[in-house]
Write a protein that binds this DNA or RNA. Structure first.
Lengths: 224, 224
DNA sequence: TATAAAACAGACCGGTTGTCCTGTTTTGTC
DNA sequence: GACAAAACAGGACAACCGGTCTGTTTTATA
């Protein structure tokens, strides 16, 4: 009975991707609860039927964002660079500096997507919490593992890997939280300086592999 | 025309306080957007008219919670104890330990109320952001000031006060974020240990003034 | 090309949200 | 005790929310 006026371009995976793109950005900018499905539909140019087809519920959509996007962002901006660095400390320092620089260039701070969602959703739902906790664990494991590798290579002495990793992640997360509230990257710089790891300004990494993709992620996030 | 069945007990300031109590706890447990005014009214046993009388909008209520409660909580749990401590480092260590102990005793982590609200509301509204940023600034100023006092008294060498304060707050905030997501106080302990400030276990502070009130606040929060 | 399944479109609905409004009761002041 | 102002009670309401439902179009398979 009803006539469908709009032309149809079945683009499997393409439409799903578009929804995820919009959801990722909207959740990052406004949070989960403040983002309505209507907003997402409008921003993505997607009908309610399409959205519901790919993501039966809002929760399912958020879960997909967490597992497919947030996890990937942490991987690209933190895990990969740290693993590829000369040492754990140097890798951490480089990421800190890269993020800070990107922040200052953009002029605003949206915060770390992982922490943003973690604060809002960890207590709201066990599934959310589990997914988010898994990302934190992987993050921490990567840094701790790098320290252990450094130790076996004689580059690090008796630093406790787990504690070191916790300190790095906590400091970064908290500094980003302060920066978001102040809308100023200062806390990031201050914290990196306060960690006082010798190292002056090493190579201003820009040529090594993966840097391009990482910068793209950073920019999309208004900073991780 | 309409008959009012319920007895009226005009309790100026008392009803306002009750609403703030409930709002403070509910915002802490479920966040701002996930807490409806209906929930608050029911939990506080307050009519819509009463709520609207004291707080014209939901935003006004949240602003009051931030300015009157969250700020006070940071003051009681952090600023006062640190200022009263023998040194900045010792004060920070004591607060870290007190909070961690309370967390472990309670068995669950609701996170830091300041950071919880900061993440959800900093980008949502300039007024929210300003109020939250002010608390962060006061917090940081208190710690930095203590370091400066230590330096003038010869207890601290060339530590940068602002950077030190930023590191402490960031580490604490981030560790609490990790702890909330993991529902485990471990990250707090790990971070305190990783900060490796000599100090073994000093006096397990319980007798000094203000401790009672501080513990009450901590308990109410399911930890700051 | 027949056909089942997947990929969409778009209307629809019950419930909830924040806010407003009207009216009643209490309180303070002279 | 008169009276204005503050402190409430409680309903009303329009907007919106997330989810469902029916139906149409495309794609895959054979």
């Amino acid at each position: 009975m009803a006539r469908h006026a709009q032309k149809r371009i079945n683009d499997p995976e393409g439409m799903r991707r578009k929804v995820l793109d919009v959801a990722e950005e909207t959740f990052q900018a406004r949070g989960y609860h403040a983002s309505s499905l209507g907003d997402l539909m409008a921003a993505a140019g997607v009908s309610g039927g399409a959205l519901h087809h790919h993501f039966p519920t809002k929760k399912a959509l958020a879960l997909a964002v967490i597992e497919e996007r947030v996890a990937a962002a942490v991987d690209e901006t933190w895990i990969v660079p740290v693993k590829a660095a000369a040492s754990a400390r140097e890798g951490v320092r480089a990421v800190f500096e890269a993020v800070t620089a990107e922040l200052e260039q953009q002029g605003f701070v949206r915060g770390c997507p992982l922490n943003n969602l973690a604060h809002e959703l960890s207590l709201a739902d066990p599934d959310f919490r589990a997914a988010l906790a898994g990302i934190f664990t992987a993050w921490r494991k990567a840094i701790a593992g790098k320290i252990e590798a450094d130790q076996q290579a004689g580059r690090e002495r008796d630093t406790d890997p787990q504690r070191f990793a916790a300190l790095v992640i906590a400091t970064y997360s908290g500094a980003m939280s302060m920066a978001k509230t102040a809308q100023d990257a200062g806390p990031l710089r201050d914290c990196l300086a306060a960690l006082e790891w010798g190292a002056s300004q090493a190579a201003s990494s820009q040529g090594e592999p993966g840097a391009r993709r990482r910068r793209r992620v950073l920019r999309r996030y208004g900073t991780l």
